Amino acid sequence: PPDDERKKAEKAARSGNEEKAREILERLGYSEDEARELAKRLR
């Protein structure tokens, strides 16, 4: 489910793995720019 994926992205971002967070968010349908912004904010 998307919620689980989003949680994974948050966890990745918090542990400093912004790249992985961005990949997950892009898979969820965010654009590259949106995903980058979100990954930064989740950190």
Rank of each mutant, 00 (worst) to 15 (best):
S31H: 04
E19Q: 11
A12D: 04
R14S: 08
A12W: 15
P2N: 13
A12V: 06
E18C: 00
R41P: 01
A39W: 02
E5G: 07
L38G: 00
K40I: 08
L38P: 00
E26H: 09
E26R: 13
K7P: 04
A21K: 01
P2I: 13
R27N: 10
K11F: 13
A21V: 05
E26S: 06
E37T: 09
A21E: 02
A39V: 15
P2T: 12
L38S: 01
R22Q: 07
A21G: 04
G29M: 01
G29H: 02
A13N: 02
R6Q: 10
R36M: 08
L42G: 02
R43A: 15
G29S: 00
R43Y: 12
R41G: 05
G29Q: 00
E18T: 10
N17E: 09
Y30L: 09
R22H: 03
N17Y: 08
K8H: 09
R41K: 13
A9W: 07
K20I: 12
K8Q: 13
L25K: 00
A35K: 01
A21S: 04
R27Y: 08
K11P: 03
R43E: 05
D3L: 10
E19F: 07
E10D: 05
A21L: 08
A9Y: 05
S31T: 13
R6A: 08
L42Y: 14
E5W: 13
K11V: 14
K8S: 10
Y30R: 00
P2Y: 14
E5D: 12
S31P: 07
L38R: 01
P1D: 15
K7C: 09
E19C: 03
K7S: 10
E23I: 09
Y30N: 00
E32P: 15
A13T: 04
K7H: 09
D3P: 09
L28W: 04
R6G: 04
A9N: 03
R14A: 10
R14L: 11
R14I: 11
A35C: 08
K20G: 09
K8G: 05
A12F: 15
A12S: 05
E23R: 09
E5Q: 11
K8E: 15
G29D: 01
A35V: 03
E23Y: 07
E34H: 07
D33V: 09
D33S: 14
K40L: 09
S15N: 13
G16Q: 03
L25W: 05
K11R: 15
E10Q: 12
L28C: 07
P1N: 15
N17W: 10
L38E: 11
G16W: 04
I24P: 00
L25M: 02
E10W: 15
E5R: 07
A21R: 02
L28F: 04
D33T: 11
E19Y: 07
L42A: 06
A39P: 00
D3T: 11
K11E: 15
E34N: 05
D3S: 12
P2V: 14
D33F: 11
L25E: 01
R6I: 15
